[in-house]
């Protein structure tokens, strides 16, 4: 299932980065991203996601290991890497005073497009990202979603082969987030390789064909979202036992019905157990609980999500929210 190293759009091997006083930001990062796919770097704050992107986008030099982006070495040939990539960082890196069109034209000129080509490109990108109506308004009046779309448009001026998105939906409302997700999907469909970092499990699940789970500067697990979930095991049944009922007795009944060892959480008065057979097992359990006279408050079948993967494979729970 692993990406063939020779034609990987992004290939990192044993990349290390050490910041004086802060310790290792990257401690042997390995990454191989197939062309034309959306690959997620998922991890908690401080896992090294942003450092990885900054090294691959040639903003920061690596201390050890090697990395190639679009076939060019980031350490020895950063100029050629820069000509092939687009970067959208955590903050929309836009000029707030200028209009969307002026931003696009300015960055297009800095990509060394001639004046007329820059104007045409700006117009085409404004149309593609549905920003024509606001094209001549200052960016500081844009909504968060519009800003992100413009930021994406700017990062695509050169028709990048590889696009780096550092937490593309942080701080966006759900509607804006969907807009950005759609834009990312369209990009991948048109052949762009996208590497995105995220703290949002849902985002990685919905967008990425493969995910590298990062913790403390290295990849601790890699695979498709369903592969990662499969590593945690199948679905689990959860039963909430009403107050006043014997937890151990209930666990016994559940164990007998499911032929599996249950886990008991006395504080929440919940019993959970792995289950095979889906809805059939639910029916069996319902009969068992009924026969035992145990009126459960809540019975649910829960499929594992990336949260479970995360808890299982990293040091602690993922912290959603602000920060890098």
């Amino acid at each position: 299932m692993s990406t063939d190293r020779r034609d990987a759009a992004i290939l990192a091997e044993g990349v290390r980065k050490h910041y004086p006083g802060r310790g290792a930001a990257l401690d042997g990062l390995d990454l191989a991203v197939a062309p034309g796919t959306v690959h997620g770097l998922l991890g908690p704050n401080g896992a090294g996601k942003t450092t990885a992107v900054r090294i691959l986008a040639t903003l920061v030099r690596l201390d050890g290991g090697s990395a190639r982006v679009a076939g060019c070495d980031v350490a020895s040939d950063p100029a050629r890497v820069r000509a092939r990539i687009g970067l959208a960082g955590q903050h929309a890196a836009l000029d707030e005073v200028l209009s969307g069109r002026q931003n696009l034209e300015m960055f297009a000129r800095l990509h060394h497009l001639r004046a007329r080509a820059a104007r045409r490109r700006a117009g085409a990108l404004l149309e593609r990202f549905d920003l024509e109506a606001a094209a001549d308004r200052p960016v500081r009046n844009y909504s968060g979603g519009m800003r992100r779309r413009l930021d994406l448009a700017v990062s695509l001026i050169r028709g990048a082969d590889v696009l780096f998105l550092d937490e593309p939906s942080t701080g966006l409302d759900p509607r804006s987030r969907n807009e950005v997700w759609n834009a990312v999907r369209e990009l991948a469909a048109s052949g762009t390789t996208v590497l995105l970092t995220t703290q949002y499990l849902e985002e990685a699940d919905r967008l990425c064909s493969r995910i590298s789970l990062m913790d403390r500067g290295r990849v601790v697990a890699e695979g498709s979202p369903s592969e990662l979930k499969a590593r945690v095991g199948g679905s689990r049944l959860e039963v909430a036992v009403p107050a006043g009922r014997d937890l151990a007795a209930a666990a016994g009944s559940i164990s007998a019905a499911l032929c599996a060892a249950p886990e008991i959480d006395p504080a929440a008065r919940r019993i959970s157990a792995p289950v095979r057979g889906g809805v059939g097992a639910l029916g069996r359990l319902a009969r068992t609980l009924d026969e035992a006279g145990l009126q459960a408050d809540d019975v649910s079948l829960r499929r594992p999500d990336l949260d479970d993967v995360f808890l299982r494979l990293t040091a602690g729970p993922i912290r959603e929210g602000k920060g890098r």
């Binding site: 986008a57 040639t58 903003l59 100029a79 820069r82 000509a83 990539i85 970067l87 960082g89 955590q90 903050h91 929309a92 890196a93 836009l94 000029d95 707030e96 960055f107 800095l110 990509h111 060394h112 700017v154 990062s155």
Partner: peptide
């Protein structure tokens, strides 16, 4: 701070 410099540094300018 705002990332404009980072963006310019990632360009072939």
């Amino acid at each position: 701070r705002g990332g404009v410099l980072d963006r310019m540094r990632s360009l072939p300018m």
